[in-house]
Design a protein around this nucleic acid. Structure first.
Length: 420
RNA sequence: GGGUCGGUACCCAAGCGGCCAAAGGGAGCAGACUGUAAAUCUGCCGGCUCAGCCUUCGUAGGUUCGAAUCCUUCCCGGCCCA
């Protein structure tokens, strides 16, 4: 199917420059496309996945993706969607973040040599050498303050208490300059991003037209939201990161497994790289029997494999089968060892088992002794599938393969204890 | 700088001398239903050696048999005046 039509049907087009012109250009042969990622943290999170996958979709359709790490723009801070001035990160943190993010950007795209080879760029490379005077002459001259003031992101901040610093005000100029630089030197003719980036992206399109007399293209995707309108990608413990050290592959997959029914179809279309035709079967099955969660499973498996690899996915699935499948007593020893690597786990001396409340707090399943007792009274804890009460003795319970005790709080919180 | 109103638990917000570990709502946790969903219902929601005790109502003192509640100091925030 035609790329634009595909993106459209997936609900991935929020805004675009002249659609017909863009379609004609895409038909004309490979085009360079860029998406920028700001290094505000040392890892990307699931919210960034849409942008990364956008690039991948273009690559699969025969175009050249340019993921951009905002080493320069990250120093300034994007005012879009912010009600307060950003705190600037120090240089060292920023460099660290950029290097971590660069590694993550290399995962989803194909960087092997060829016509469609992805290329990672960092805007610090051309922004740092830029002198202030040249910037004012080559960028500033083409932009009117009137236009900049008209932007929503600027206007809302002008009325606010905290105001808007000149630094953040200038942000969109830097991003516009990025686009022009990539246009001139790398043949990048299109920029994509979230709908909150529309203003910044168009600033680049304008700059290219005014200074080079050329037409560039732009397209944004809708920001992903949850069923209740809340920000996507936040779990109770914070953002869901792509870095396995910050969010384990198990937690990552769980995040997708627990997606609301009402959103899962939409997410599958937005995030899956599989052809839409291949998704209709899954979506039909989901609608017919939502309890089976086939859509959640498909989504979770595909993204976990994409971000963490096939091996990690296999390990996580094996663990999940034990945790959410049948009787843990039936799990093999190898599987339990895998579980130990995927869910929170700890080792305990068998003497420590005497203190039930102590164990529950020690594993982090309960936040305090009071919490542990309370949840026990509410039948919230299980060990090896058996409900615990305040009088339960962990000591007497049969251990899985002689040394494991699988604790569970509620339905989804597990902890594996290895007894020595 | 002057005046004024305010700072209560994770968030919002009542309380305005004892019945206050502190109403109500939200968030969160557990249970029931079901499906690792949503909605709904029920319970919980400072801590502990848990029929009791300890520590909390911006901070530090004071009045009182007794203070989140009254007085004073200081810190922070809103508004008004300069």
């Amino acid at each position: 199917m035609d790329l634009l039509a595909d993106l459209d049907r997936r609900g991935l087009i929020h805004d675009s420059t002249d659609r017909a012109a863009l379609a004609a250009r895409l038909d004309g042969g490979p085009i360079g496309v860029y998406v920028g990622f700001d290094p505000t943290a040392d890892s990307l999170h699931v919210g960034h996945l849409v942008g990364q996958l956008y690039l991948r979709r273009f690559q699969l359709a025969g175009h050249r993706p340019f993921p951009l790490a905002g080493g320069a723009t990250g120093m300034v801070g994007d005012p879009s969607g912010r009600s307060d001035e950003r705190n600037l990160l120090d240089l060292e943190t920023l460099r660290h973040n950029v290097s971590r993010i660069e590694a993550q950007l290399q995962r989803i795209l194909d960087f092997s040599p060829g016509r469609y080879q992805a290329r990672l760029v960092n805007n610090a490379d051309w922004t740092e050498p830029l002198s202030l005077l040249n910037f004012l002459r080559d960028v500033g001259k083409f932009v009117t303050i009137n236009q900049m003031l008209a932007k929503d992101s600027v206007r809302s901040r002008l009325d606010s208490e905290s105001g808007l610093s000149f630094t953040e005000f200038s942000y969109s100029l830097l991003q516009a300059n990025d686009f022009r630089h990539l246009y001139e030197h790398e043949g990048v003719e299109m920029q994509a991003g979230g709908s909150d980036q529309w203003g910044n992206i168009v600033a680049g399109v304008d700059l290219i037209r005014r200074s080079l007399g050329k037409a560039a293209h732009a397209m944004t995707h809708p920001l992903v939201t949850k069923a209740d309108g809340a920000k996507f990608g936040k779990s109770a413990d914070g953002a869901v990161w792509l870095d396995p050290d910050k969010t384990s592959p198990y937690q990552f997959r769980q995040f997708w497994m627990q997606v609301d029914d009402v959103m899962v179809g939409r997410y599958l279309q937005m995030f899956s790289l599989r052809p839409l035709d291949a998704l209709t079967g899954v979506l039909d099955e989901q609608t017919g029997a939502p309890g089976k969660r086939v859509a959640q499973r498909a989504l979770a498996d595909e993204l976990t494999e994409l971000v963490h690899g096939a091996e990690a996915l296999a390990a996580v699935r094996a663990a999940t089968d034990v945790l959410f499948g049948g009787d843990p007593m039936l799990a093999t020893e190898a599987t339990l060892a895998a579980v130990a690597r995927e869910v929170p786990a700890s080792k305990l001396q068998s003497a420590a088992l005497v203190d039930l409340v102590g164990v529950l707090v020690g594993t982090g399943l309960a936040s305090s002794n009071s919490d542990a007792r309370r949840t026990l009274q509410q039948k919230g804890f299980r060990a090896n599938g058996v409900v615990l009460t305040e009088d339960s003795q962990l000591t007497g319970l049969p251990r899985l393969h002689g040394r494991f005790l699988l604790l569970r709080k509620g339905k989804t919180n597990h902890h594996l204890v290895e007894i020595s």
